Simulated assay, not measured.
Amino acid sequence: MPSQRALGIAVIGTGKMGADHVRRLQHVISGARVTAVVDIDENRAKTLADASEGCTAYTEAAAAMAAQDVDAVLIASPGPAHEAALLDALGCDLPVLCEKPLTPDAASALRVLEAEQKLGHRRVQVGFMRRYDTEYIKLKRLLDSGELGRALMLHHRHRNLSMPPWFTNEMLINDSVVHEMDVTRWLLGQEITAVTVHKPAPTSHAPTGMDDPQFVLFETEFGALADVEIFGHCGYGYQVHAEAVCERGTVRIGDEPGPRLSADGRWGGRITPDYIERFDDAYDREVQAWVDATRRGEVTGPGVWDGYAAAAVCEAGVLSQREGRRVQVELTERPALYR
């Protein structure tokens, strides 16, 4: 039902992303306040809760969801913990914003999808924040307008300054390229049907055992192709670019904004260091849209089907990465709830 008061939000996971969402909800977003934080590290949760008036720290998500002052849940814990939290939230019929991935694999994502279907209505939004980025929104509108004709190809570049030492080959697909998987589906309005991962000679800056960079090719259900350059250790900053090649023109987004400086015989500008700074505005718009929709009693934005589809494409991508071959994506039939 629509709500006229500020939503009480439980934030599950108080790491880098969770703490940033607590800050966002408390100081940027209107119509909501953080009433609970959850983390297995009790001290970390308590430290964050103590800094927010009226906020309680918990070590178990189910306990926070049962609290009277919790109206909705934002999940920012590591991916393997998402399924249990999502099923608990659906069991309480609570609205959820879940950071990607929905779950780490297609089987667990399918279980969440089945649980939401049993409710008979959508409750979960998945945190694919690029759909809320100004440049991606403009690109989507242009493609949907038909002004340039059909989109035939998409070219994506996704570069990181560096990756944490614990980052793996599989995580390059599951935690990085997953964004291009979702945004390709969204921009084209098509499912991805096959994935091929190519691995050039690795950079000397990649840790032992990591194939970095990689080149990923998506095939879609209506014949478009999309490629992704994922480079985890480019060494100079964080960049995300996309270019659509259409029947009557091309359009590119992601070029660095100003200011452009010319001095001492050089010209150039600044490159953002990480994803939080690059997509800070998109995160703000995403969370505000979720809060506004929840207060209206609605669910908008990418949902459980999108999270499940991304997980299925990730599985195909990891298999292609390991075996060096083209792998078809296996999807169940799309339920009526998500059409």
Rank of each mutant, 00 (worst) to 15 (best):
L154A: 07
K100Q: 10
T103Y: 07
K118N: 10
R111T: 10
R111M: 09
T103Q: 03
H82Q: 01
T134E: 15
R111V: 07
L119C: 01
K118S: 12
P101S: 12
D133M: 07
A151N: 02
T103A: 14
E135L: 11
E114T: 10
R159L: 15
T134C: 13
D144K: 11
V124C: 06
F128I: 07
G79K: 03
M153D: 11
G79C: 12
V126Y: 00
H82P: 03
D133I: 05
Y136G: 07
V126Q: 02
A84L: 10
E99N: 12
A81H: 11
D144T: 11
L143C: 04
L143A: 06
L94T: 00
R130L: 15
G91N: 04
L110E: 14
Y132G: 07
V126P: 01
L90D: 03
P101N: 11
A85Y: 15
H156M: 09
S145P: 09
D88R: 09
H121S: 10
P80D: 05
S108R: 14
Y132W: 13
L97S: 01
P104T: 07
V126D: 02
R150L: 14
G149H: 01
E135K: 10
D105N: 15
Q117A: 14
K140L: 13
D93A: 14
G79Y: 00
T103H: 06
R122E: 04
A81V: 09
R131G: 15
L154D: 08
S145R: 05
G146K: 05
G120Y: 05
E116M: 04
R130Y: 12
F128Q: 07
A151H: 05
L154I: 15
L154G: 03
Q125F: 00
E83G: 06
S77W: 04
G127T: 08
A81I: 07
R150M: 12
L113T: 02
G91T: 05
R141F: 11
A107P: 02
G146M: 04
L148V: 07
L139V: 08
E135Q: 14
H82A: 05
D93W: 06
D93T: 06
Y132R: 05
R130N: 14
D105V: 03
D105P: 05
V124I: 15
L142N: 10
A89M: 01
M153G: 14
S77Q: 01
H121L: 06
H158W: 08
M129R: 10
L102N: 06
M129T: 12
H156D: 06
L148C: 09
R157Q: 12
V112Q: 06
G146E: 01
F128A: 07
A89N: 00
L148E: 03
R150Q: 14
L97I: 00
Y136V: 14
P101E: 13
L94Y: 01
V124R: 02
M153R: 11
L148G: 02
G120D: 04
L113F: 03
R130I: 13
L139T: 11
E83S: 08
M129P: 04
R131I: 14
E147L: 15
A107Q: 11
P95D: 04
L154M: 08
A115S: 08
I137C: 15
S145W: 03
L152W: 03
E99V: 05
E116P: 03
H121N: 07
T103I: 09
C92W: 05
H121P: 02
L142Y: 08
G79S: 13
A115D: 06
